[in-house]
Computed example of a mutant assay.
Amino acid sequence: MPRRQLGQLEAEVLAALAAADGFVTTARLRDRLSGDPAYTTVNTILFRLHDKGLVVRERSGRRFRYRLVVDESKLVAGRMRDQLRVASDPAGVLAQFVRTLNADETAALRELLDGP
């Protein structure tokens, strides 16, 4: 199986946490991720996200349960913005991004751009 790109698993963990209702254990979260990542890998990512202040945790027996405490859309948009800031050709990056959108995403983008 090919390895994920740098930060891809962290992004998947954040998305899975955002989709969860309340607190979730590492094992339950791992079951929601593609590619069968190692339990210890997911746990390491959760510890790092906790250190960054993106998740909170509570003890549940001998384990922790985690919950996202930031708005996922703001977090991802901020990351996208950071990438555009350092790109030598931001317009080219945006053009490439738009070419990868599916029909629903394109319609949502058009609605946002045409909105008030």
Rank of each mutant, 00 (worst) to 15 (best):
S60M: 12
E58I: 12
V70P: 00
L9F: 01
L46W: 01
F64I: 00
L68H: 00
K74C: 09
M1G: 15
K52I: 04
A107L: 09
Y39K: 10
P90R: 06
E10N: 05
L54V: 06
R57I: 07
L6H: 14
R67L: 04
V93C: 07
P37Q: 03
S60V: 12
G35K: 01
Q8F: 08
D31L: 14
E105F: 05
A27P: 04
L14I: 08
T44K: 13
K52L: 14
D89G: 04
S88M: 08
L68Q: 00
E105A: 15
A16H: 03
L49E: 08
R3F: 09
G7N: 09
A108G: 06
R110A: 14
F23Q: 04
V24C: 06
D114Q: 13
G7S: 07
V55G: 01
V76T: 09
G61I: 03
A91D: 11
Q8P: 04
L54W: 11
Q83I: 08
M1F: 09
P90M: 06
A107Q: 09
S88A: 13
R85F: 05
R32V: 03
R99F: 07
V69N: 07
G35Y: 01
L6F: 12
V56D: 15
R30N: 09
L101S: 01
T44R: 13
K74M: 09
V76Q: 10
D71R: 10
R4P: 06
T26Q: 07
V93E: 10
R28T: 14
L75G: 02
A27L: 12
L54N: 01
D89F: 05
T106G: 13
P2H: 11
F47Y: 13
V69I: 15
G61L: 00
Q5A: 15
P37S: 03
V76M: 11
A108E: 12
D82E: 13
A20Y: 01
R67N: 05
A103P: 06
